[in-house]
Design a protein around this nucleic acid. Structure first.
Lengths: 161, 161
DNA sequence: TTAATATATTTTAAGTTTGAAATTTTAGGC
DNA sequence: GCCTAAAATTTCAAACTTAAAATATATTAA
């Protein structure tokens, strides 16, 4: 005996489509607010903040390729951003002993200080935007997202250029 | 008598920051997969798909400004996309009687057909990506997102240029 | 050693996105 | 009618992003 799953699967795929659109709308809304705050209150941009955040997490520096890998953006992308940060004295490039190809990008003390200021506000903005979520809500959403992420991470290994 | 809320609020803001990063990672991962599929399997892009999707939802056409409002992208952005779609015979601009400033963007029959083909695959991709979510998961996440969206929609009225 | 291959990064060209300025048209007050 | 303000759209410059080509260095194998 077989089961007709189509009659149930059809609405499920629609429900999944709807929740995806809602998820996207939420993420875009929050991200837009963050971009706006970074621009209006700090004269900077999200890509710059992302790079600084990654560099702050690795005080010993990150190779350019590790940085782009970590942020899931292209190689050429971070070059320009680190260039700008370097011009402004917020980051610098350090030679890697034993490998003249590679360079470590690092935050300067000034860059770290600037980032910590940004990060503090960033946490504040998020805290307000997610005002309605208590720990239980967070745990529930987190568990649900883990299901999707684990299912997805299987085949995300490399989408080579 | 007053309560010291800081000792509890501090970790909550950190938890909110973490769930935001996880939400963003999930949305970016799914969006990246959609972009890849649109490019590799259909030779098109997500912004084009979004515009076609909006136009398909309004068969009588959308003013350019309504279109950019609906998609939450800049005015200048949709101009170029509708231009391209028009060149390819997928969309067209219709004059609005009584207002020479405005134009209605509309899908052509060819555009509608192309969109329906895309939309069918799109629903399939999402259905697979959210494979792990049953109706209960969807409802739980949906309710949680509603909390954030409703809280956010209060002040999202206009961030005028 | 030398040649071939692989790795790390930058450069380049093309396309996207944004916010603001410019353009055109409409609407209202006088 | 005429003038100013508002509205709809496009144009523009700047920043971002990507994939691919170019450059430089490292590693491996013959």
């Amino acid at each position: 005996m077989t089961f007709d799953t189509t009659s149930k699967q059809e609405p499920l795929s629609k429900a999944r489509l709807r929740i995806w659109l809602k998820l996207l709308k939420t993420a875009n809304g929050i991200e837009g607010e963050i971009r706006r705050n970074l621009r209006d209150q700090h004269g900077t941009t999200l890509p710059r903040f992302d790079v600084m955040s990654a560099l702050a997490r690795f005080p010993d520096g990150l190779k350019m390729s590790d940085l782009s890998n970590f942020l899931k953006v292209s190689n050429g992308n971070v070059t320009g951003i680190v260039d700008k940060l370097t011009e402004e004295g917020l980051a610098l490039r350090v030679a890697v002993p034993g490998d003249k190809r590679a360079q470590l990008a690092q935050l300067t003390p000034k860059g770290l200080q600037a980032f910590e200021e940004l990060a503090h506000h960033h946490e504040d903005w998020i805290n307000k935007l997610l005002d309605g979520w208590a720990v239980e809500d967070i745990d529930a959403v987190s568990a649900a997202l883990d299901v999707v992420l684990s299912h997805h991470s299987d085949k995300e290994s490399d989408h080579a250029q």
